[in-house]
């Protein structure tokens, strides 16, 4: 295979990584943007989504697409429910204090992780892809499922963007983000908005996880990399900026894919981390974030 096709393959792999990363980071970014809560347990919501996807899809006999469809529907809902519970029982009681919630979500991280270890076990388990189509390109065949993941992520990002910018729910979320107190003075039930946003953020991570399990097996420690990469993306893109999050996720995902294929995955992570350091030094508000006033 020549350089061109090889580069195309690497880029496609990078786009798959970017797709999953965009959805996960979008969840983290929304929660931080609206609530000013740094959710350290975000990766565990991702892991929970994947583990549940395995549990749900194996509960269905017959064609793998049935189990997968059920997982895609039920897993995010369950994870959203867990997030809602955590929001009510923990974050709200801390009055969303930025520092206290970091410590609390670290605690949540270990609770979710240990629960997964207890009930799911230490093994990595695969989930079958809903379909098994190979798309034949002139130089190589490529997984149709992976292309579908890219498409699904694009659709979901556009949908999120439309909700945020074109609907009343989105307007309420943005108003809450910019000025919580004034939002309340205009009848916006801020605590309900917070609960909804936290659940939505977790659900985005869970959807990303369900999409990824046919490619990468479900494991109780699989939340670490998505958490780290999401933080990298959110810092580079600018905290709370949807556009920045998407651009940074594509940048990181794509370069991760390409550098991993041509050099090594470790180099890819090193460069991403270096980029974060540079952004923090030279443009702390991120590429697209507004400078804090």
């Amino acid at each position: 295979m020549g350089f061109g096709p090889y580069f195309l393959l690497a880029s496609l792999e990078g786009l798959v990584t970017a797709a999953v990363l965009t959805l996960t980071a979008l969840g983290l970014s929304l929660v931080f943007g609206v609530m000013r809560v740094v959710n350290v347990a975000h990766g565990e919501f991702f892991m929970l989504g994947a583990v549940l996807a395995w549990a749900i899809s194996t509960a269905f006999a017959g064609h793998p697409s049935i189990g997968f469809a059920a997982a895609l529907l039920v897993s995010p809902l369950v994870v959203g429910g867990v997030a809602l519970l955590a929001e009510r029982l923990v974050l709200r009681r801390l009055n969303y204090d930025p520092e206290a919630t970091i410590v609390a979500t670290i605690g949540l991280l270990y609770i979710v992780q240990q629960l997964a270890l207890t009930f799911y076990g230490p093994d990595a388990r695969p989930v079958q892809a809903p379909f098994n189509i190979r798309v034949t390109l002139p130089w190589f065949g490529y997984s149709g499922y992976k292309l579908a993941v890219i498409a699904a992520a694009i659709v979901l990002v556009i949908a999120t963007w439309l909700v945020l910018t074109r609907t009343k729910v989105g307007l309420v979320m943005r108003a809450t983000q910019y000025d919580r107190e004034t939002a309340q003075a205009f009848g916006i039930p801020v605590d309900r908005v917070y609960a909804g946003v936290f659940a939505l953020g977790a659900m985005l991570a869970a959807i990303a996880a369900v999409l990824v399990v046919p490619i990468q097996q479900a494991h109780y420690l699989m939340g670490r990399d998505p958490l780290l990469l999401s933080f990298i993306v959110v810092i580079i893109g600018g905290l709370g900026s949807l556009r920045g999050t998407v651009v940074a996720a594509v940048l990181i995902g794509l370069s991760d894919g390409i550098i991993s294929v041509f050099f090594s995955p470790t180099l890819a992570k090193m460069l991403a981390t270096l980029l974060v350091a540079l952004v923090l030094v030279f443009r702390p508000q991120g590429l697209f974030g507004a400078a804090t006033r």
């Binding site: 307007l171 943005r174 108003a175 205009f186």
Partner: peptide, 14 residues
Amino acid sequence: RLFSELTVAENIEI
């Protein structure tokens, strides 16, 4: 205390 990132129309909508 306007929602300064939002447009005039959006502030009114709220």
